[in-house]
Design a binder for these strands. Structure first.
Lengths: 116, 116
DNA sequence: TTAATATGAAACCAAATGGTTGCATATACT
DNA sequence: AGTATATGCAACCATTTGGTTTCATATTAA
């Protein structure tokens, strides 16, 4: 299992990209099946250009890939980026478990005495 | 295992809160050990008020809890919120696996014939 | 009681965000 | 060749974000 090290900038981009429901929906859809930008755009109540911008944000975060096919641009979700974000959150879980371990250690020590 | 259902607004708040390196550091630190806002603020190159605002963003996303203790406010990271975010990303993984299964099914079908 | 500390909250500011419209260009269809 | 479609990109706009400073209030310490 390779451990990816993401820079602060990369992590910023990933979470910022995921912090918008339209973008999360695009990720979800393009993980299910590829779609062109105009196919995606049909289903949102906003302009084509707005959807295009959302896709650009996702691509900058490497959450989707954009491949030309004729006059279209095919968007495909990138499960690897999602996995990296998940691993990142997993590290916080590990940190927290460390705190619990330390608390347990404290409680396992000699019970506190007035003179201690 | 209880499945939490987060509203779009809640998910927006969580990822937006995590999309800032100072806030991620505050989460990390307060998962390790509780800290007052001023203790946190000492270690960042910004005003106390700025750190106070970051804590407010994290609290709104339920990523930390703020408990009064005397004149201080003690900040403690909330591992449950992190876990929920992780589960959310896990759902995307599941979605993606569905695509792979469908692709496998396609490949397992009768090989394509010109007349098909 | 007075001084110091910790927080809260408001007003302000520059930059980023999320949307728009309009126009240019590339590709496909007839 | 001419038209329709898909995209890219720029300019613009309102709102949000991430910072600041300032002032008020609550609590602790001397």
């Amino acid at each position: 299992m390779v451990a990816y090290t993401l820079s602060d900038d990369e992590v910023d981009r990933i979470f910022k990209a995921l912090a918008d429901r339209t973008r999360r929906d695009i990720v979800r859809r393009t993980l299910i099946a590829e779609a062109s930008i105009s196919e995606l755009a049909k289903d949102y109540e906003m302009s084509f250009a707005a959807v295009q911008k959302h896709v650009a944000v996702l691509e900058a975060a490497d959450l989707v890939a954009r491949t030309p096919r004729g006059r279209e641009r095919i968007i495909l979700g990138n499960p690897e980026a999602i996995r990296r974000a998940q691993q990142l959150l997993g590290q916080y879980e590990t940190i927290w478990r460390g705190r619990i371990d330390r608390l347990d250690a404290l409680l396992a020590e000699d019970p506190p005495t007035p003179g201690n």
